[in-house]
C-alpha cells in the first residue's frame, strides 16, 4: 500500500489503495478520546443504566405486567413509614407506597422530561441562534434582545410564570422548562456561528452559488454541532433538576404519579421523623444530574482539538 502522496500518482497503486484506505470519521475520533476519560465513561454507564430502567418500566407498563416489586401508586395507609428493610429496600412513604418502586418508576419521567425539554429548547434555540448569527443586523438585535430579557429573569421563576399561564401538568412542565432554556442555546449557537461564518469556506460556499439556508444547514451547523451536543447533554441535567424543582413546588407531575422532585416536596414535612423518604429521591436526582454532567464535560474535552493532542 502506498502511504505517501506525490503529485504524480501511480494510478494502479492508488486504485488498489482505494479499497484499503477508509476515512477516519470525526465521531470515531471523538469516541476514542471519550473512552479514555474515566469520569465520562462512568457517566455514560450510569446513563445507559438509567435508560435501561426507564425503558423496562415503561415497556412492562405498556404490556400490563408488573415487574417492579410493588405497584408504585398503590397506597396502603397501614404500611406508612416503614423503615428500609429487606421487603421494602428504601422503606415506604407517608401513604405506604414502596419508595424503591416509586424511584424506579420516576426514572422514566425524569429522563423523558429531560430529553423532551431539551428537544424543545434545542430546536427553537438553534433556529433562532442560527438566524440571528447568520443574518446579523436588525434581525440579530431583535432576537438577541428578547433572549436577553428572558435570561434576565431567574429560570425557575420564569418557568413558574409559564406554568401559571399554562396550568399544571407534566406536559406543561416540559414546555415551560423547554421555553426557559431557549436563550442559552440561541446564544451558544449564535456565538459559534459568528466565528464559523468568518471562515473562508463559508465564503467559498457562497461563491459557488449556495443559498443562505443551505449554507447554514450544510456548511455552518455541522461545524458547530459538537458544541450543541455538549450543551444539550449538560442541558438534560439541568432540565432534570428543573423538573424536580417544579415537582417539589407541586407544579409538575400530578399525583399519584411518581416523580423525584414531587416525592421530595411531599415528604419534606417528615425530614426528621422519616429522613429516608427524602434521602433516596435526593440521591436519585444527584446521581442522574452528575452522570449527565460527567458525560457532558467528557464530550466537551473530546471535541476540543487542543485537549485531543495529549
Amino acid at each position: 500500500m502506498k502511504t505517501k502522496d506525490s503529485s504524480v500518482p501511480n494510478e494502479n497503486l492508488l486504485q488498489a489503495a482505494e479499497y484499503v484506505e477508509k476515512p477516519e470519521s470525526q465521531l470515531k475520533v471523538m469516541w476514542e478520546t471519550l473512552r479514555q476519560n474515566k469520569a465520562a465513561v462512568v457517566g455514560l454507564i450510569i446513563i445507559a443504566f438509567l435508560v435501561l430502567i426507564a425503558l423496562t418500566v415503561w415497556l412492562s407498563e405498556l404490556m400490563g405486567k408488573q415487574i417492579l416489586p410493588y405497584d408504585p401508586n398503590y397506597s396502603d395507609m397501614g404500611k406508612a413509614f416503614i423503615h428500609p428493610n429487606s421487603t421494602h429496600w428504601f422503606g415506604t412513604d407517608q401513604l405506604g407506597r414502596d419508595i424503591f418502586s416509586r424511584i424506579l418508576d420516576g426514572t422514566k419521567i425524569s429522563l423523558f422530561v429531560g430529553v423532551a425539554a431539551v428537544a424543545i429548547s434545542l430546536t427553537v434555540g438553534v433556529i433562532l441562534g442560527a438566524i440571528a448569527g447568520y443574518r446579523g443586523g436588525k434581525t440579530d438585535t431583535v432576537i438577541m434582545r428578547v433572549m436577553d430579557m428572558m435570561l434576565a429573569i431567574p429560570s425557575i421563576l420564569l418557568a413558574i410564570a409559564f406554568m401559571a399561564a399554562l396550568g399544571k401538568g407534566l406536559d406543561k412542565a416540559i414546555i415551560a422548562i423547554g421555553l426557559v432554556s431557549i436563550p442559552e442555546y440561541a446564544r451558544i449557537v449564535r456565538g459559534s456561528i459568528l466565528s464559523v461564518k468568518e471562515n473562508d469556506f463559508v465564503q467559498a460556499a457562497k461563491v459557488i452559488g449556495n443559498k443562505s439556508s443551505r449554507i447554514i444547514y450544510k456548511h455552518i451547523l455541522p461545524n458547530v454541532i459538537s458544541v450543541i451536543v455538549v450543551r444539550a447533554t449538560l442541558g438534560i441535567s439541568s432540565a432534570v433538576l428543573d423538573t424536580a424543582a417544579l415537582g417539589f413546588l407541586g407544579l409538575g407531575v400530578q399525583p399519584p404519579f411518581a416523580e423525584w422532585g414531587d416525592m421530595l416536596g411531599r415528604a419534606r414535612g417528615f425530614i426528621f421523623t422519616a429522613p429516608y423518604t427524602l434521602i433516596f429521591p435526593g440521591i436519585a436526582i444527584t446521581i442522574t444530574v452528575l452522570a449527565f454532567n460527567l458525560l457532558g464535560d467528557g464530550l466537551r474535552d473530546a471535541i476540543d482539538p487542543k485537549s485531543r493532542i495529549k
Binding site: 502511504t3 505517501k4 502522496d5 506525490s6 503529485s7 504524480v8
Partner: peptide, 19 residues
Amino acid sequence: IKGMVPNPLNMPSGCAFSD
C-alpha cells in the same frame, strides 16, 4: 521540486530529500 516534505513519522530510509 516535485512531491512534498515527507511525513515526520514516516521518513524515507536514506537521505530525507531522496524521493
